[in-house]
Design a binder for these strands. Structure first.
Length: 878
RNA sequence: GGGCGGAUAGCUCAGUCGGGAGAGCGCAGCCCUUACAAGGCUGAGGUCGCAGGUUCGAUCCCUGCUCCGCCUACCA
């Protein structure tokens, strides 16, 4: 025992094993292996990122799956990697450059990119190092980055094919523009924030209307009312001449369904240049676009006297000016949601510009069908509804970004004839006229490349062995927050280019919150750092905690130190169970031991282990990580440690024969060994450490590549479980008396047992075991009578009289019995009521009725025994 | 506006064939019993958000309501 510490030390163990696994190549998959493939691509974290709880959860679940499958004999591949996070890198470098007093535009494109790469080389590896600390068994030899040469080729191939099929186009449209990032954003990249605003009612000649953006008044090219709004029918079609802050303007009134007649005055101003709805209205009615706010967020020359003014400053000024001219009817406070940039939280400005778009409808139709037909299974199923809803209402996807870090759009413009050419290879001259060309300056949305991730990481567009073997991937594990951003787009692009789904299952997991249920954010300062947690409690405990929190369908979970601590204790429990086994192995001989007949305890724990195997496998198959973890916890602690280890002490410490001891050693070692394998995907480090120390025959050199336990029908032993149940009941009943009578655990109790006929043989056989577990001296006698000064324990039909002579407390025993009788009486009343209703007896299934009858009988017998005991005391025999 | 999730022990949460509800932590009592005090044994604690309905029987299924959270949307 001297060579194994009495507490588990996670740090040393974790540092020892990961490098061993990686160096021995256990993580690497071989596409040529003659095993059934099982593959996962890791949702690529941002290259700018460091490990947060979301990553930790996501990767723990994937690691559990991949380790299980690997142990189970599958050709298991887990592809890791990172994405280039275009906007995030820009935000980060912009900030850096600002501290140096410069900007990216001053630096120039090439120098900026050089700097970005430099940054990526230096800091981009942070998260992958942290994933190793978590124990992630991914195939690092296949690590990919979205801007790798191969993946960049995939992006270009995808772009060209979509262009050739007319699924990519370039058009003027109103887009979400971030004036700070100086780029367009996709609809999904705009977040909503509730803000207080002023709802300004402006007089437009005979009409009055409310707006929260008075500054866009300068860009108005129309007014609109609802077609069936009788109040305004006379004005529809008219062009009004009305006074405004910059003189009189001509403005046309149109009728459009988009107007809500019940909101405000029922009239809206139409500003096609600065509002998506107005843009659509303008299109329908031929109203011109008038851009009064520029890409820099400042008023343009068209804003006349306000030109050059910041848009928010202009809002204030224009209201003041209008008030001075009597054009403001009234101002009301108003709370509404404004769109902000998801990266920098700047208020987005809708602006008209020419961008590249993906025509999503045809792609989405196929992706919807794949889920409807079950070729992609979303788990939990409820999420497929959300998926359908979004996919069915999908809008075209703006994929160009006015940024530099990313995949540059493979389109060239001829400076001579103005033609556009999309090409797989870089162009130096116009293919039609030979004139000079210029490449489009913009890059593609990062999600465009991550949308190709499942195929591009496996080698697409080449038909590689990896692609043939591992595509479609088996399961995608991710949080619901990127269901649209990523999952939906992978489904569309994967089906488009591979003509097959990118993954068969999608497991959507929870998001992790802090102990107060708050979303974690740096500004709130409530970010739980997984590395800190791992350091304090151990990585295995952390992983196990995450697994227990993973209930399919639950949206958010909270993580707290208390919870992690309890699983650290679990790891320690396991450690000490192994320590117990290891310190009792002198003289152990596996081959001889295997020939000895198992005891009741041996048969019982083997049967229970088998049940645990079935529960864990079944739960994992259904992605019920919490259930799998609970089954492991319950088996290991409640059954193996609390009962089997305690029972094994008898044959180990005081064997009736050498064989008995040998057999206990054998069961202890083999069940523990199996438990470690069953636990390994959840707690890889501690299980490896302990497994290495256990004696084994014909085992591989690491638990990682050992077989995952299989359920064995012949291990199931109903009679052992029933008999153990009786022993446990009796022991527990005796202990309860000890506990409630406040008798020291150190004292040995004298107990007379009068077994029920069906328990006689068993209790004769297990007498020493009951004595050991209950710390008692037993007299088993079917004809026993109750000794004076004793308390009664009941286990089924068996009675046990606990000798309390000397320590007897009549009042306490009476109180205890009265409480028990009360409980029994309540149950009896309930069951009698239930069984007394003819409807129940007639309509309920026969086995339910039978079960309730049996319960009633049992409870009645118990009550009778307790009542007899009480009167026995009252007679003064206590 | 539409959609989704949640409401169960003091706290955090499980409970997927509808048959008197469980865990962890916390709490109380007795214990350093030779694996483990990061532990052992015992115990207290719940009208399963509210109101109806279906059913012999509802935490579970249906309807409505209240409160919390999230997603989504062209009410400016």
């Amino acid at each position: 025992m001297s060579d194994i510490a009495d507490r588990y030390d996670p740090a040393a163990t974790e540092a020892r094993w990961y490098p061993v696994w990686e160096e021995r190549g256990y993580f690497a998959a071989d596409p040529k292996a003659a095993k059934k493939p099982f593959s996962i691509v890791m949702p690529p974290p941002n290259v700018t990122g460091s490990l947060h709880l979301g990553h930790a959860l996501d990767n723990t679940l994937q690691d559990i799956l991949i380790r299980t499958k690997r142990m189970d004999g599958f050709n298991a591949l887990w592809v890791p990697g990172t994405d280039h996070a275009s906007i995030a890198v820009h935000v980060l470098l912009d900030r850096q450059l600002a501290t140096e007093g410069t900007t990216r535009h001053a630096l120039g494109r090439d120098a900026f990119l050089e700097r970005a790469w430099q940054w990526k080389e230096q800091s981009g590896g942070t998260i992958t190092r942290q994933l190793r600390l978590l124990g992630s068994s991914c195939d690092w030899g296949r690590e990919r980055f979205t801007m790798d040469a191969g993946l960049s080729r995939a992006v270009r191939e995808a772009f060209v094919r979509l262009w050739d099929e007319g699924l990519i186009y370039r058009d003027d449209y109103i887009v979400n523009w971030c004036p700070r990032c100086q780029t367009v954003l996709a609809d999904l990249e705009v977040e909503r924030e509730e803000r207080d605003a002023e709802f300004v009612y402006i007089k437009y000649g005979p009409l009055t209307l409310g707006t929260v953006r008075p500054e866009t008044k300068l860009g108005d090219t129309g007014l609109a009312v609802h077609p069936r709004d009788k109040r305004y029918t006379p004005y529809v079609g008219q062009t009004l001449t009305i006074p405004s802050v910059h003189g009189e303007i001509q403005i046309r009134v149109v009728a459009d369904e988009a107007v809500d007649p019940d909101f405000g005055t029922g009239v809206i101003k139409v500003t096609p240049g600065h509002d998506p709805t107005d843009f659509e209205i303008g299109k329908r009615h031929g109203l011109p676009v008038r851009t009064v706010i520029g890409f820099d967020g400042k008023m343009t020359d068209l804003a006349g006297p306000y030109a050059g003014m910041d848009r928010f400053e202009c809002r204030k000024r224009i209201v003041e000016d209008m008030q001075a001219q009597g054009l403001v009817d009234r101002i009301e406070p108003y709370r509404h949601a404004v769109g902000v940039c998801y990266r920098c939280k700047t208020v987005v400005e809708p602006l008209v510009s020419k961008q590249w778009w993906v025509r999503t409808k045809p792609l989405a139709d196929v992706a919807i069908k794949a889920v409807r037909e079950g070729r992609i299974k979303i788990i939990p199923r409820a999420w497929s509804k959300t998926y359908y809803h979004w996919m069915e209402n999908i809008r075209d996807w703006c994929i160009s970004r006015q940024l530099w870090w990313g995949h540059r759009i493979p389109a060239w413009y001829c400076e001579t004839d103005g033609s556009v050419h999309v090409s797989r290879t870089d162009l130096t001259a116009c293919p039609t006229c030979g004139g000079p060309v210029k490449q489009d300056p913009d890059v593609l949305d990062t999600w465009f490349s991550s949308g190709l991730w499942p195929c591009s990481t496996l080698g697409w567009p080449d038909q590689t062995d990896d692609l043939k073997t591992f595509y479609p991937t088996s399961v995608l594990v991710t949080g619901y927050d990127i269901l649209f951003f990523w999952v939906a787009r992978m489904a569309m692009l994967g089906l488009k280019f591979m003509d097959d789904v990118p993954f068969r299952d999608v497991y959507i997991h929870t998001l992790v919150r802090d102990a107060e249920g708050q979303k974690m954010s740096k500004s709130k300062g409530n970010v739980v750092d997984p590395l800190g947690v791992m350091e304090r409690f151990g990585t295995d405990a952390f992983r196990f905690t995450l697994a227990t929190l993973s209930v399919p369908g639950v949206r958010d979970v909270r993580i707290s130190d208390d919870r992690i601590e309890s699983y650290r204790n679990f790891a320690n429990k396991l450690w000490n169970a192994a320590r117990f086994a290891l310190s009792n192995l002198d003289g152990y001989d596996a081959r001889r031991a295997a020939k000895v007949a198992p005891s009741l305890a041996d048969r019982w724990i083997e049967s229970r282990f088998d049940a645990a195997v079935r529960a864990v496998r079944d739960s994992l198959r259904r992605y019920r990580f919490n259930d799998a973890a609970a089954a492991l916890y319950e088996f290991t602690w409640r059954e193996l440690c609390d009962w089997y280890v305690e029972m094994a002490k008898l044959p180990l410490y005081k064997p009736a024969s050498p064989d008995e001891r040998l057999r206990a050693q054998h069961t202890l070692v083999t069940v523990l060994e199996g438990t470690l394998r069953l636990l390994h995907p959840f707690m890889p480090f501690i299980t490896e450490e302990l497994w290495q120390r256990l004696p084994k025959t014909k085992a591989p050199e690491s638990i990682m590549i050992a077989a995952y336990p299989k359920a064995r029908r012949k291990a199931q032993d109903a009679s052992a479980e029933r008999d153990m149940g009786t022993v446990v009941d009796l022991v527990t009943a005796i202990r309860a008396i000890r506990g409630e009578m406040r008798i020291s655990p150190a004292a040995t109790l004298g107990v007379t047992v009068r077994p029920a006929p069906e328990h006689a043989a068993l209790l004769g056989d297990q007498q020493r075991m009951v004595e050991a577990l209950a710390r008692a001296t037993l007299t088993v006698d079917p004809a026993a009578t109750r000794p004076p000064g004793s308390a009664l324990a009941v286990a089924g039909g068996t009675e046990a009289y606990v000798d309390l002579a000397g320590v007897v407390d009549v009042a306490a025993e009476r109180a205890r019995l009265e409480k028990e009788i009360r409980k029994a009486a309540e149950t009896i009343a309930f069951l009698e009521g239930k069984l007394g209703r003819p409807e129940f007896v007639e309509k309920a299934p026969a086995e339910v009725v039978e079960r309730e009858r049996e319960r009633l009988g049992t409870e009645r017998r118990l009550r009778d025994k307790l009542t007899a005991s009480l009167s026995w005391i009252a007679d003064g025999r206590g």
